Computed example of a mutant assay.
Amino acid sequence: MTDSATTSAAGESDGFETWLRGRVPERGLRSKGASVLEVLLTQPRRVSYSSAAEAAELAGVNVATVSRTAQALGFSGWSDLQQELRARYLSSLSAPDVAAAQRTEGELGGASLRRDLESLAVLNRRLDDQLIRTIAEAIAQARRVLIIANGSYVAVGSALGHNVRLAGYDATVVRDDADLANSVSRIEPGDVLVAISFWRLYQSTVTAAEEASSRGARVFALTDAASPALAAAAEQVVLIPAEGVAFFPSLAPGLAVAQAIVAQLSTVDPERTRKSIEAAETQWSRFGLMHRQPRRG
Rank of each mutant, 00 (worst) to 15 (best):
Val24Trp: 00
Leu289Trp: 13
Ser79Gln: 14
Val268Phe: 01
Gly110Lys: 05
Leu37Asn: 01
Ala242Trp: 04
Arg46Val: 15
Asp269Val: 01
Gly22Ile: 04
Asp176Leu: 10
Leu127Val: 13
Glu137Cys: 13
Arg86Trp: 13
Glu38Trp: 11
Ala209Val: 03
Leu29His: 03
Ala167Cys: 15
Phe16Ile: 02
Pro294Tyr: 11
Gly168His: 04
Ala59Pro: 05
Thr65Arg: 05
Thr172Ile: 05
Gly60Ala: 10
Ser50Asp: 02
Leu193Ser: 09
Ala209His: 10
Leu81Val: 02
Arg125Pro: 08
Ile240Thr: 06
Leu90Ser: 05
Leu230Tyr: 13
Ser119Trp: 12
Leu81Ile: 02
Trp19Phe: 11
Leu37Lys: 00
Arg30Lys: 11
Arg144Trp: 12
Gly74Asp: 06
Ala101Arg: 00
Glu243Cys: 12
Leu37Asp: 00
Arg272Leu: 03
Leu160Pro: 05
Gln43Gly: 02
Thr104Lys: 08
Glu12Cys: 04
Ala280Pro: 03
Asn62Gln: 09
Ser50His: 08
Gly297Gln: 06
Arg30Thr: 02
Ala149Arg: 01
Thr223Asp: 04
Tyr202Arg: 15
Leu73Cys: 06
Gly33Arg: 05
Thr172Pro: 02
Asp3Ile: 01
Val61Asn: 04
Leu29Glu: 00
Ala59Leu: 03
Glu105Ala: 09
Arg68Phe: 00
Leu93Ala: 09
Gly15Lys: 07
Asn62Pro: 04
Gly106Thr: 07
Ile132Trp: 07
Thr69Gly: 02
Ser158Lys: 04
Gly151Met: 01
Ala56Pro: 14
Phe198Leu: 12
Val194Trp: 04
Ala178Pro: 09
Val47His: 03
Ala233Tyr: 14
Gly11Phe: 03
Ala167Ile: 06
Thr65Ala: 01
Leu81Lys: 12
Arg186Ser: 08
Arg126Tyr: 13
Glu210Ala: 15
Leu40Pro: 03
Leu20Tyr: 08
